[in-house]
């Protein structure tokens, strides 16, 4: 742009209303999402390979070696029974770790200021990061499911339930990870929740067993675990069996999405952990 054309551009600075604003937000959202996906693909040895190896070990040890002695579960081989839970577990963990490491990394490296000093509204920032994390979760889920097919055969009973559950579950843990990253001041702070909260909840969320096998009060206590609903809804989507009602699972997941989403937006709007 030469001097006169730049002058003209300055004199007629655009006003952002209606469709223009919507287009600008769509471009910004696509930019954050693309950047997040590129990051996942750039460091694929850290983002895609480890969950594949971990899940392969689960399938070999729990599915083949131990599973062959367990017998059938709700009409399926033990290997078939644990596949949905392991896929969901890998999606949840990868969504969470993706968004915490990416967003906290941007805080630590201060390039989060690129976002804060831009005209993007908070919801665009949040949606972009969540979309990036969900896409990584889906990518990992597809890889893990592909690996599972080397060990067992699966027939997807309710594809729509399976897909919506994966998206809702991934969104919940992306939002939770984002909130964790906003409060985090050190790298230790983003490791505490996965280790002390996420891992126990996942292992006790019915990935390896049916909660109907538990007696009172452990079964009732297990029902307070949100991961149980995600695992069971996804198991219903893949195998057609679940320990809880799918509709109750949807209500629980939607409530978490709305609650965590509203809280994350409020934190972003206030600039908690970002603006002094």
């Amino acid at each position: 742009m030469n001097d006169s054309s730049r002058n003209a551009a300055i004199a007629t600075a655009p006003t952002f209303r209606g469709a223009t604003r919507l287009r600008a937000n769509a471009v910004a959202l696509a930019t954050i999402t693309r950047r997040e996906v590129r990051r996942v693909l750039r460091i694929w040895t850290q983002t895609l390979v480890p969950p594949a190896i971990t899940m392969m070990l689960y399938f070999v040890i729990f599915g083949k070696i131990i599973g062959s002695r367990v017998g059938s579960m709700q009409g399926f081989t033990y290997m078939q029974y644990i596949v949905p839970g392991l896929v969901m577990m890998s999606i949840i963990n990868n969504c969470y770790s993706n968004i915490t490491s990416s967003f906290f990394g941007s805080k630590f490296g201060r390039y989060v200021e690129e976002l804060l000093a831009s005209p993007m509204p908070s919801w665009v920032v949040l949606t972009g990061y969540v979309a990036g994390a969900v896409l990584r979760g889906l990518l990992v889920g597809i890889i893990v499911l592909g690996i599972a097919l080397f060990f067992t055969s699966l027939h997807v009973a309710h594809p729509l339930v399976a897909i919506t559950t994966v998206i809702l579950g991934a969104t919940i843990f992306a939002l939770a990870g984002f909130i964790n990253a906003m409060f985090a001041k050190r790298f230790d702070d983003i490791a505490i929740v996965p280790t002390f909260v996420l891992a126990p909840l996942t292992y006790l969320g019915g990935v390896f067993y049916s909660v109907n096998m538990l007696g009172t009060p452990w079964r009732e206590i297990s029902l307070a675990n949100p991961i149980l609903y995600m695992v069971n809804a996804f198991r219903f989507g893949i195998l057609g069996v679940a320990d809880v009602s799918v509709w109750v699972a949807y209500v629980v997941m939607l409530a978490f999405v709305l609650g965590l989403g509203a809280f994350a937006l409020w934190l972003l709007h206030k600039g908690v952990g970002l603006r002094s």
């Binding site: 952002f16 604003r21 287009r23 600008a24 937000n25 471009v27 910004a28 696509a30 930019t31 954050i32 693309r34 950047r35 690129e114 976002l115 831009s118 005209p119 993007m120």
Partner: peptide
């Protein structure tokens, strides 16, 4: 990317 944050395609 920064241009994208400003809505510039």
């Amino acid at each position: 990317n920064v241009a994208g944050f400003y809505g510039i395609p």
